[in-house]
């Protein structure tokens, strides 16, 4: 702020002062544009996923047929004995791990260690791709072996398949977009595109990635445990 502007704004007290601080001109708060935008987008996206999950709870209550026992449907057998939820556990583990590598990438980005940043983002993307791969496996097993379809399934309420494919599909789409986005950022990091512009972009991509992970935790809880 220019000196004159400061003089004109003799600080107010109490509540008014708080408001003045929060509404100060933008020099007071350095938030990169892209970061502010990503945060807003993520809040908006949160509303989308919340609506999906509320919809899920709602149809689960309104449907007249019994809800399938999810832990049995999602079981995988190794050597004969079915282990409930094992695939999902692995998927979750992979995704959480990717959040770790992402966080490290952000850190190395700010330290301007381009090689490490590049490889760590690549690792994150790889974990993401693995996750999507396992999801494809899960879907094909559900569709092929168990006969679950969006409009019906042999286990009970048709809504089970509908909502499952819709929500995990929507989440999978997010992960897929995230993988592409990460690869793009990684390439640009490597090519030195951000050398004099700064590495906020890694953090911004990271925000998105952590969000997608967080959403998965909720989907996991709502679909597999509930």
């Amino acid at each position: 702020m220019s000196e004159a502007a400061v003089a004109a704004n003799s600080p107010a007290e109490g509540m008014d002062g708080l408001v003045d601080d929060w509404s100060a001109d933008k020099q007071a708060y350095h938030v990169p544009w892209g970061k502010a935008m990503m945060w807003l987008f993520l809040v908006s996206d949160t509303f989308i996923f919340s609506c999906f999950l509320v919809g899920y709870l709602n149809v689960r209550m309104t449907t007249t047929e019994p809800w399938p026992v999810q832990s049995e449907i999602f079981a995988l057998s190794f050597g004969g004995a079915p282990i409930p939820l094992i695939l999902i556990a692995i998927m979750t583990f992979v995704l959480i791990t990717s959040s770790g590598t992402m966080a490290m990438a952000v850190n190395y980005g700010y330290r301007r260690d381009k090689t490490k940043t590049f490889w760590l983002i690549c690792a994150t993307a790889l974990f993401g791709a693995m996750f999507v791969g396992m999801q494809v496996f899960e879907w094909s097993k559900l569709i092929g072996d168990e006969g679950v379809r969006p409009w019906g399934n042999p286990f009970g309420a048709a809504q089970f398949g509908s909502i499952f494919f819709m929500v995990t599909g929507f989440h999978g789409l997010h992960v897929t977009c995230g993988v592409i986005y990460l690869m793009w950022v990684a390439l640009r990091v490597k090519r030195g595109y951000y050398d004099d512009k700064g590495f906020e972009i890694v953090e911004i991509a990271g925000l998105y990635w952590h969000f997608v992970d967080l959403v998965w935790v909720f989907i996991f809880a709502f679909f597999y445990l509930l």
Binding site: M1, S2, A5, D20, W22, A24, D25, K26, V31, W33
Partner: peptide, 10 residues
């Protein structure tokens, strides 16, 4: 939020 000119508080 982030592109107001100098002195322009919310």
């Amino acid at each position: 939020l982030q592109y107001r000119c100098r002195g322009l508080t919310m």
